[in-house]
Simulated scan of single mutants.
Amino acid sequence: MSDRMAKGKRVLPVGPTELQIEHRLLDDLGLLRSPQTRAMYDWYRDHRDCEEGPVQWAVFDLLDHAPLAENFFLVNTEDPEAVQIVLHGEKVRRLLGNSTWTKDVIREDDALPEKRSLFQYYRVIIRDRRAHYCEIFGRGGYLRNNHFESIDLPMVDEEGKVVRILGVLGVIGENETPA
């Protein structure tokens, strides 16, 4: 995996919709524009054991974040050869559609190039053990040029292994076009 992946762009076709995604390490809190991503990152920052380290998965309780639950997605990363998206909140489903691969096991050699790209992106988060940020423009299909962002937060077990990536999606604007 090249360092270029740590900051980059990709285009994913999702049915009749195209997602243009720019991703990077979340090293500038000024990037966060939606109240959902900001609130979750504030919680994450306040629960880390060290300044840049991940939060323990055992500390997270969905009930403590009920108002944000519709914006969550959750990725199981316990298998070193695969990741599995195990949860999408209702807002995530509405924004990305039902073809968001919930319960799919995604591997490096997946037949779909967009899944291979997603697998590589999640591997970067696991390697870096730090929060990442995505800015996303959705065009076509049901999205009508929506503009949204997500944060991807690595969560570790008691031994410090990244076992989950907790994601939060927030809408920035509607009917916009990418710069």
Rank of each mutant, 00 (worst) to 15 (best):
F60V: 05
L143M: 11
S99W: 09
R116F: 04
G97E: 05
L118S: 12
I126V: 14
G97V: 10
M155Y: 03
F72P: 00
V75R: 00
V156I: 15
G141N: 09
I151V: 07
P113Y: 02
L96N: 13
V83F: 14
D157N: 14
I106W: 06
R129I: 10
Y142R: 12
F148P: 03
K103W: 11
T77I: 01
N76W: 06
S117G: 09
L68P: 05
P154G: 14
D152W: 01
F137T: 01
R116H: 01
R127K: 13
Q84M: 14
R123Q: 14
T100E: 12
L63A: 14
D104I: 00
H147K: 11
N146P: 01
N76K: 14
Y122P: 03
Q84V: 10
D79A: 00
F72K: 00
T77R: 11
F137Q: 04
S117F: 03
F137V: 01
L112V: 06
P67R: 09
L112C: 06
I106K: 07
R139W: 02
L118C: 07
I126H: 09
F72Y: 00
D157Y: 05
H132Y: 15
H88F: 02
L68D: 09
N71T: 08
S117W: 05
Y142G: 08
N98Q: 15
I125M: 11
N76F: 09
T100D: 13
G97Y: 06
K103E: 15
T77L: 09
R123E: 12
D110R: 08
Q120D: 11
P113N: 00
H147A: 09
H132T: 15
G89T: 03
L96T: 10
L68H: 07
R123K: 12
I106L: 08
V86T: 15
G141T: 08
F148L: 10
L68T: 12
A131P: 08
D152S: 14
K91S: 13
I125L: 11
A69P: 02
S150C: 10
F72R: 03
Y133G: 03
P80T: 10
D79L: 02
F137C: 01
E108K: 08
I126A: 09
D152T: 06
R139N: 10
